[in-house]
């Protein structure tokens, strides 16, 4: 098994409100390896969003360690954490993922250009990333000229453009109808099978079921998990026996 792309060990996050200490996460252990899609399920207030923010270096734990590609984020300077966010981590949110004034290919190329990649190279890499999620033909379109499902594909392409391999998705299908949402999850799953590591936060069981493992959060604690699931081939073989 390859080394985890994301590793949370004993992660606790407390928020202080006056004299009251609220524990958003308590002693969470979670690792995600390349090729794996992990879903995090829980009711609102269970700590899902906090977990995602910690995983992406947007927040720091009160206790415990968060490692991305083997690097403990606590040991890095703010500039180094920002670089990890640019080069290693991509986000997909429920909506408003794309800058409305940029075309699809420009949106995907943006993180590369911000990281100093030259324009032509960035655009070619972005174009390839769009092809990988099946929307290469829409490279020149602006977000308002695309459907919700197409925009989410572009967002996935941007999240995994260039060297980025850790994809953090927060309810990415929340604004989509059932069939379109399923198409987006198919793309997400395919990108993970191609070597990315994905964390999918959702409250929909049907969407979480696309993951290899599903982690259940309650009041900041992982209470249980399901999976990994046997590959389809072995399910078929078992049925045919």
């Amino acid at each position: 098994m390859s080394a985890p792309l994301l590793e949370l060990s004993g992660v606790t996050r407390e928020h202080r409100q006056g004299d009251v200490v609220v524990q958003a996460l308590r002693g969470v252990d979670l690792s995600v390896t390349p090729g794996e899609l992990v879903a995090v399920m829980g009711p609102s207030g269970s700590g899902k969003s906090t977990l995602l923010q910690l995983a992406g270096g947007l927040d720091s734990p009160t206790a415990g360690r968060v490692c991305v590609e083997g690097r403990d984020l606590a040991g890095l300077s703010p500039a180094q954490v920002a670089a990890v966010r640019r080069r290693s981590v991509g986000y997909v949110f429920q909506d408003l993922n794309l800058l409305p004034s940029l075309t699809a290919v420009e949106n995907v190329a943006l993180p590369l250009e911000l990281d100093g990649v030259r324009g032509g190279v960035a655009r070619r890499t972005a174009r390839a990333a769009l092809d990988e999620v099946g929307v290469g033909a829409l490279a020149g379109r602006f977000p308002d000229e695309m459907s919700g499902g197409q925009q989410q594909r572009v967002a996935i392409a941007r999240a995994l453009v260039g060297p980025r391999r850790l994809l953090l998705a927060d309810e990415p299908t929340g604004a989509l109808d059932s069939t379109t949402g399923e198409e987006v999850l198919r793309v997400l799953r395919a990108r993970c099978e191609a070597g990315a590591a994905g964390v999918l936060v959702t409250h929909e069981a049907r969407h979480a079921a696309w993951a290899d493992r599903v982690v259940f959060l309650r009041d900041g604690v992982i209470v249980d998990q399901s999976g990994p699931v046997a590959p389809a081939e072995s399910l078929l073989a078992a049925g045919g026996a």
Binding site: M41, R189, A205, S226
Partner: peptide, 21 residues
């Protein structure tokens, strides 16, 4: 409830795996 939920999810994952195929 949680025991059932995990089992339900495992079944759902298996069905989804077959559907993906």
């Amino acid at each position: 409830v949680q025991t059932q939920r995990t089992a339900t999810m495992t079944g759902l994952q298996q069905l989804t795996r077959l559907k993906a195929r």
